[in-house]
């Protein structure tokens, strides 16, 4: 049976309203997106929603260092990853892109983002 779902795309600030038809757990039609990223977003969103997680870690010397996952991770895992991030205390100096934790979730690394 087909099921209709309405989504708001989060890929960019436009925030397209997308209509997805889902059959047997997968998207069979996507309407309302204005770019290919929107289609991909909708297809993934109805199967397994993922997000890039952004946060901070406290360096050994005390400074807060912005971090993010290098790729989207499962939405349901966000709070678990936060617990893991809290235990990360890297040494300075660091630069943007440095990997702090390899494969923190779903193959994504935790990287320095500021």
């Amino acid at each position: 049976m087909k099921e209709k779902r309405s989504l708001t795309c989060v890929e960019c600030p436009i925030g397209c309203s997308i209509e997805v038809e889902v059959e047997n757990g997968v998207a069979v039609s996507v309407k309302g997106n204005s770019c290919p990223r929107g289609k991909l977003y909708a297809e993934n969103e109805v199967v397994c929603p993922k997000r890039v997680l952004t946060s901070t870690v406290r360096a050994k010397s005390g400074e807060m260092i912005p971090v993010k996952t290098s790729a989207p991770v499962k939405k349901t895992e966000l709070m678990n990853i936060m617990k893991e991030i809290k235990a990360v205390h890297p040494e300075l100096p660091l630069k943007i892109g440095d990997i702090l934790v390899k494969d923190i979730s779903d193959g994504a690394n935790l990287v320095v983002s500021g």
Binding site: P13, V52, T54, P66, K68, G114
Partner: peptide, 17 residues
Amino acid sequence: IHNGFGLTRFKESLSGP
């Protein structure tokens, strides 16, 4: 520190820093 900056300019999603 959140992402979503630069999509128009750099065509990628950057953090503020």
